[in-house]
């Protein structure tokens, strides 16, 4: 297997006060190959979101290293992380995190605009994703005019629009009904299969866990299980 993400002895501790520090991740080491479709599961507070934030270069580890491809992102400065977030990582947040001043269409195009993609390319990608996610009617609405589920679908479209190498999704089905959750997972699998996007999802939804090829289980900040459900990594 060709390793895409290498996590070695990763620690993350939150200093809640001068005297109190809370370990969120303890000595986590993982390897995620190219084109993997992995799910990180575990109870609340087990460190799933923390791990995803570190992989998404939104936070820095207290100890240990994270490599994305040949780049050790845990050692990079903030200014060096921006292009990595923009070009290589798509992030679907638990709370959607759409940009409130932009319409759904503009949110989906935002990263492509940052990348300098042409207007035509942006439009065709928006049309393609809107069809797949059934959000054609929502494109001109602003986030505050959308329901939680609709926002989540737009957020997924934004995350994948720029064709990132790695898609991180934090509880992506949390605000979706089972039909829409299935559609979303279909799309993520399709992206994984067709475009070779490495997908890493944190979830405790059985619907998601059952789709995983690679299952990672966290408990109290430690990896307690790391195994492949199906041996069909592309």
């Amino acid at each position: 297997m060709d390793a895409f993400i290498e996590i070695a002895h990763l620690h993350k501790t939150f200093e809640t006060s001068r005297e109190v520090s809370t370990p969120a991740l303890i000595d986590v080491s993982l390897t995620i190959p190219h084109g993997d479709f992995a799910v990180i599961s575990g109870p609340s507070g087990s460190g799933k979101t923390t791990l995803l934030n570190l992989l998404g270069a939104l936070d820095s580890p207290s100890k240990g290293t994270i490599s994305l491809g040949q780049t050790m992102i845990s050692k990079l400065k903030e200014a060096e992380l921006s292009p990595i977030r923009r070009d290589r990582i798509g992030f679907v947040f638990q709370t959607h995190n759409l940009i409130p001043v932009l319409s759904a269409r503009q949110n989906i195009c935002y990263v492509m605009r940052l990348q300098g993609r042409s207007q035509q390319e942006q439009e065709s990608r928006v049309a393609e994703l809107a069809g797949k996610l059934d959000i054609e009617q929502l494109l001109d609405k602003h986030p505050d005019q959308l329901s939680g589920g609709q926002q989540q679908r737009v957020a997924v479209a934004r995350a994948v629009a720029s064709r990132p190498q790695l898609l991180l999704a934090d509880e992506p089905t949390a605000s979706l009904d089972s039909t829409n959750a299935e559609r979303l997972l279909d799309l993520l699998e399709q992206l994984n299969h067709d475009e070779g996007v490495t997908v890493l999802i944190s979830s405790h939804d059985s619907l998601v866990i059952n789709r995983a090829r690679h299952s990672i289980v966290l408990r109290d900040g430690r990896v307690v299980a790391d195994h492949y459900e199906r041996n069909d990594i592309p």
Binding site: R85, R86, I89, V111
Partner: peptide, 16 residues
Amino acid sequence: LREFGIMIAVGTSFQQ
């Protein structure tokens, strides 16, 4: 701040 945080999280640089 949250809006800017989102923008940074999806790849906008601080300079932008």
